[in-house]
Write a protein that binds this DNA or RNA. Structure first.
Length: 422
DNA sequence: TCTGGGGTCCTAGGACCC
DNA sequence: TCTGGGGTCCTAGGACCC
């Protein structure tokens, strides 16, 4: 059996944990640049807000229902996520952190020593007691069914946090009641296709014969079908290192000058390089893209991208930034107001063995690696951007994202630690 | 006025090999 | 005149996830 432990409205719950006055109140968390709603509490949903909605379109509901709005603070959420998974790992041996707010647990063998439902309920209660984050748990023979279970557990209080789908009868009942659109692996396109084939519930899909499934779907659809029928086949084993690394942002204000665009692209390139070094990899390509604001049909539209090959695969901030700025120079068009840009690294491999070039323009690579390592250490110890390239520019620039409602980094920065008055 | 960011996997088709 | 068969690798685009 698998258990899926899912944190309810995770980002919003973290904010509530640090703002106890908000218990029972509507809370939502915005995307980067304070653009769209990305997380919201049931109270905020009841106030008529929806995930994905641009906040400026629902100002009225926000004011009328006194919804508390927060900017996103990923450092804080990541630190809290670590606490939650730490607690899970104390009770369960095989835990996979599937995402920042979800963990799969392999419960093989636990049935011999524990009542699984009780056991998982204890884990859930411990998480909520120690972190103030409410969680929902689904337990089932496959991951797809476990995810369904966790949604039922979230929806109906009667489950007291844990929904077990451990008999065929419960499985069929769950498949009958569950919303097809919410099945893990069924996206917008597959939903349309299933509807056009006359399938409207997960149960109808699960009951289709194998040849029908193979005829209409390829591997992903087939796997979902197997999982819904209780045959585990989806492997979500954690990836040790990423195959591509990117940093991109929608700008706070639109920019047109090349210097600001350079500063943005250099900042993104440095961020990519830092992530790359953290996973002990090197990259072989650097891609840069820039684009105008697609929502402004009164302005000239433009978007372009370009890729540079690195002579020797590298994780060096200076080299990667130089390559990125070279691409920017080639794709930049001076007539445009830009709203978004990004840098992506590809052809990623381990830094343990890198093919060298006989005529390498970088004379002393080990020395440059020491430099990067030192910069990383300084930035880790004294805060982000303690040391950076001059081309990244000053801290206040028009392209920097808006985040007007950001909670301090209570868990990761000693200068921002929570003050409690008694 | 204001509209997110970061990933993975799968497949089909083209280029190329013998 | 008649023009094969069996592979691999790479890439772009689609679909999906959080």
């Amino acid at each position: 059996m698998y258990a899926l432990i899912d944190c309810n409205s995770f980002f919003a719950s973290v904010e509530k944990a640090f703002h106890p006055g908000l218990r029972g109140k509507p809370v939502c968390v915005l995307s980067s640049n304070d653009g769209c709603i990305v997380a919201l509490t049931p109270e905020a949903k009841a106030a008529g807000l929806h995930r994905g909605e641009p906040i400026f379109k629902c100002r009225e509901a926000v004011e009328r229902h006194h919804v508390k709005v927060f900017s996103t603070n990923m450092m804080l959420y990541a630190a809290m996520s670590k606490r939650v998974t730490g607690i899970i790992r104390q009770s369960i041996e095989q835990v996979e952190n599937y995402s920042i707010d979800e963990s799969f647990c392999n419960l093989d063998g636990y049935e011999r020593h524990y009542d699984i439902e009780d056991y998982m309920r204890q884990v859930a209660q411990r998480i909520t007691t120690w972190t103030d984050i409410p969680v929902s748990v689904g337990v089932a023979p496959t991951k797809t069914l476990a995810k369904m279970g966790s949604k039922f557990a979230k929806q109906y209080r009667g489950y007291r946090g844990v929904c077990m789908i451990d008999t065929d009868e419960k499985r069929r009942k769950a498949l009958e009641l569950f919303d097809l659109a919410d099945v893990w692996g069924v996206g917008r396109r597959s939903l349309e296709k299933l509807h056009s084939l006359g399938v409207t519930t997960p149960l109808q899909f699960a009951d289709k014969p194998l040849p029908w499934v193979r005829n209409h779907f390829s591997k992903p659809g087939y796997q979902t079908w197997l999982e819904l029928n209780g045959h585990p086949c989806i492997d979500t084993a954690e990836l040790v290192s990423r195959q591509s690394i990117g940093t991109s942002r929608t700008f706070g204000d639109m920019v047109c000058t090349l210097d600001y665009l350079k500063a943005a692209v250099a900042t993104f390139a440095a961020s990519c390089a830092t992530k790359l070094r953290a996973q002990h990899s090197v990259a072989g390509t650097v891609t840069v893209f820039i684009c105008s604001n697609p929502f402004r049909d009164d302005l000239e539209q433009y978007s372009n991208a370009g890729t540079a090959l690195l002579h020797v695969p590298t994780a060096d901030t200076i080299e990667i930034t130089e390559a990125a700025l070279g691409v920017l120079g080639a794709i930049w068009n001076g007539r445009i107001l830009y709203k978004r840009a990004g840098v992506m690294l590809g052809a990623i491999s381990s830094d343990a063995c890198v093919q060298q070039k006989l005529f390498d323009p970088i004379g002393n690579r080990p020395e440059r690696q020491d430099l990067s390592r030192t910069v990383d250490m300084l930035n880790q110890r004294y805060g982000l951007k303690t040391v950076s390239l001059a081309v990244e520019g000053e801290s206040v620039q028009p392209w920097k994202v808006h985040c007007d409602h950001k909670t301090p980094n209570y868990l990761t920065d000693i200068r921002e630690i929570l003050t409690v008055r008694i």
